[in-house]
């Protein structure tokens, strides 16, 4: 029978996970894990419950960063005042993860560790330039989100290593952002395509453009060709069309149970294009109002 551990401090959890003979696996919200456990009879030698670790809880501001605990749930994220004020696209994404029951359990760290290409929060973390604070019994390290998902369902986590915090830069005053999930239905849906966009738009041109998409490749993907197209451009129809083409050219979506490759590629282009156009329209409106 599986042994269960419910440590209340991080050091204890890391020690347990470092014990090779124990063979313990970390668990948190279990919203994916228990589905597969039921399907395949998952029965590790031991599990370590992460939900009692204070070090993984809470959202706080630390200087120019918002620091989110890995065990913060999506229900907490979508309601958190700091997240809503500074990282609205993360709050928006959190609100699309499953339904209420799942949002009450699923955690940001779980979404990362589970490493599904369809993880709703992941393109947002890419677009916002998230940095992950990881820990083992031997110490801590920081890894940019961009370097975290290595391949289909594979992460940079070492054996016994936990995601402790997710640190997100507070966006500049001229920051713009957009999030769009195209799912299988209006709620409680798995994404067909999910896109997140962040940039600075001061002076009428886009800078520091970060654009990422999920469900279009084996891992969540930065759309770097499209970013390059947009970098330094005004958010107008020409730039939008060029970014759309570049985005479509950068992905290799597949036919699967939720959608088709052809639709995914098309809709990715449409969504990217619309995000750029809407940034442009918002700037125009703002300019008109100011002028």
């Amino acid at each position: 029978m599986t042994r269960a551990f419910r440590p209340t401090d991080l050091a204890e959890a890391l020690r347990l996970l470092a014990d090779v003979d124990l063979g313990a696996r970390p668990i948190a919200g279990c919203t994916d894990l228990l589905v597969s456990k039921t399907a395949v009879g998952w029965s590790p030698a031991a599990v370590v419950d992460l939900l009692r670790l204070e070090e993984l809880r809470g959202v706080r501001r630390e200087g120019e960063r918002i620091d989110v605990g890995a065990a913060v749930t999506f229900a907490e994220l979508r309601a958190d005042p700091l997240v809503r004020q500074h990282l609205p696209i993360l709050a928006e994404a959190a609100a699309t993860v499953g339904a209420w029951q799942v949002q009450n359990r699923a955690t940001l760290g779980g979404n990362l560790a589970n490493a599904s290409p369809a993880g709703d929060s992941l393109p947002v973390l890419a677009a916002l330039g998230a940095e992950l604070q990881l820990a083992t019994a031997d110490g801590e390290r920081r890894v940019a989100y961009d370097d975290f998902h290595l391949a289909y369902r594979r992460t940079a986590l070492l054996p016994g290593e936990l995601i402790v915090r997710v640190r997100l830069p507070v966006p500049a005053p001229d920051a713009v952002g957009a999030f769009k999930k195209v799912g299988t239905r209006a709620a409680s849906a798995i994404s067909k395509v999910v896109v997140a966009f962040a940039a600075r738009a001061g002076g009428g041109v886009l800078r520091e453009v970060r654009l990422a998409a999920g469900s279009v490749a084996p891992t969540p993907l930065r759309l770097r060709a499209a970013e390059r197209v947009l970098e330094g451009s005004a958010p107008d129809a020409t730039a939008a069309d060029a970014a759309s083409s570049a985005a479509r050219g950068a992905v290799q979506p597949i036919d699967d149970v939720r959608s088709t490759a052809a639709y995914r590629e098309w809709v990715l282009g449409r969504v990217v294009r619309r995000m750029v156009l809407e940034v442009g329209e918002a700037r125009t409106r703002a300019g008109t109002a100011a002028g």
């Binding site: 339904a99 299988t184 239905r185 209006a186 709620a187 409680s188 798995i190 149970v257 939720r258």
Partner: peptide
């Protein structure tokens, strides 16, 4: 049938 579960066979929710 590819859609063989309630996560893949999507009947309408209250928001649909």
């Amino acid at each position: 049938l590819e859609q063989d579960s309630f996560s893949t066979y999507t009947i309408p929710t209250s928001l649909d």
